[in-house]
Design a protein around this nucleic acid. Structure first.
Lengths: 230, 230
DNA sequence: ATTTGGGTAAGACGATGTATCGCAACAGTA
DNA sequence: TACTGTTGCGATACATCGTCTTACCCAAAT
């Protein structure tokens, strides 16, 4: 094999930065879930050795933090909302949409304080929408209450979605497909109300359920905002 | 070392059942968090080889499911509540208390559908408290909305609590202790409302915040229950 | 031309979840 | 009592992981 056959060695290893690392990690997570993200695989996708990443992050957890903040960039509103309610509602829906695109995000959601620049910007936008409408404590409570609902609702939706998907893409026959287990438990008669609910319930689509619950919570917030001292 | 010094070998390996396995796993998790739970360590605590566990569970995830259901046993109400509101409220507080005792529970909360017997019993109790107060759809929405709030609020509380604890048991000087990072970000002036909130906010204790947000959500539910068709 | 230093790759280490394999002790039968 | 079949357990093995340590290579500085 002559020199001519051999390619020149790359003058420099491909340049690297956090942006590219995070992008690679997110791509892996989108394809195979959080557990598909290993430092080795992220590095491999960038034609680098695993240890190279430690120049940019010092722990895998930090990589997750960066991924979370990157998703917050997608959540960030692009235009000023008409009013506080519209601001909170659209923030909630953007969070949900982003999570549906990056389902692994649900595993991290609420797991640790989000202090990255994009996450702070999202919080800022929310607080700004509420600023001046009530005393500070009420505003904070409002933001946190809505945020808690959003976190919990999205987590459940993703959990259910995965459960459905795990039974082999069964469309809507949750009760029967989700294992004989639930059916058997319900048949014991120990959970009469639950059984009735599963049997008679109209299984509204996830988006509607989310939006309805959100509206309820927003109603509650509205009630408190109108009388600030309550 | 004579024969007399050596104990007789156990005639039979110590008996095992899921209850003991789950108890050992929970003990490990209580001490060192979820990541301290490995099948090897659980087995070691029961004087067994790791593979022995596979007779009782077929995957680590199943062990987590059992642990989750065991916590639901602690959440299960012991006495009939006075009214639906008291039922939901005390359920929420019991969930919070159980999570404070088993902080790893926050990591699993809402992560996958809880279908164990105790979890189903908890759901049944909740639905029973609401049964008949509105049409089924409204009742379901009420239960799910409150549950979502509880999940999200508890997750955030635990996340904050860990962050505090990680800075070296700092009492209340979150802003300064939680790294110069936040202070620096706030000092940029890009987050004026947030900065004001952090600076001026009265940091109410976690239980009060939880209870207040919960009351708001319960108010919203009450409003919908009174006019079932809304 | 020589040295120095930062950053990278290679290898190693201990730990993990789980599959496979072989044995040892019991139950039942002759 | 001797034998055999079965069941369940332990030991071992394997691939993978996050991270540490070590040694090198290449470029800039002297």
């Amino acid at each position: 094999m002559t020199v001519w056959d051999r390619p020149e060695p790359p003058s420099r290893p491909a340049p690297l930065d956090r942006e590219r690392i995070v992008a690679a990690a997110i791509a892996l997570a989108d394809e195979g879930g959080l557990e598909a993200v290993s430092l080795r695989k992220v590095a491999a996708r960038l034609d680098a050795g695993p240890m190279r990443l430690y120049g940019y992050i010092s722990t895998k957890q930090e990589l997750f933090d960066l991924m979370v903040d990157e998703v917050h960039a997608e959540i960030l509103p692009e235009e000023a909302p008409r009013d506080w309610r519209e601001a909170l509602r659209s923030h909630a829906h953007r969070t949900r949409q982003a999570t549906l695109r990056h389902q692994w995000f649900a595993d991290l959601l609420g797991g640790r304080p989000a202090l990255g620049p994009n996450a702070l910007a999202v919080t800022e936008a929310t607080l700004a929408a509420l600023d001046g409408l009530a005393d500070l404590d009420t505003v904070m409570r409002a933001a946190e209450t809505v945020s808690a609902y959003v976190t919990g609702a999205i987590r459940r939706e993703i959990a259910d979605l995965r459960a459905e998907h795990a039974t082999g893409l069964s469309k809507r026959d949750w009760q029967r497909a989700y294992g004989p287990h639930v059916s058997r438990m319900l048949a014991t008669g120990r959970f009469p109300v639950l059984a009735k609910a599963v049997h008679d319930g109209t299984h509204a689509d996830a988006e509607t359920s989310f939006a309805t619950g959100l509206d309820w919570v927003l109603d509650a917030v509205a009630a408190k905002l109108s009388r600030p001292s309550a």
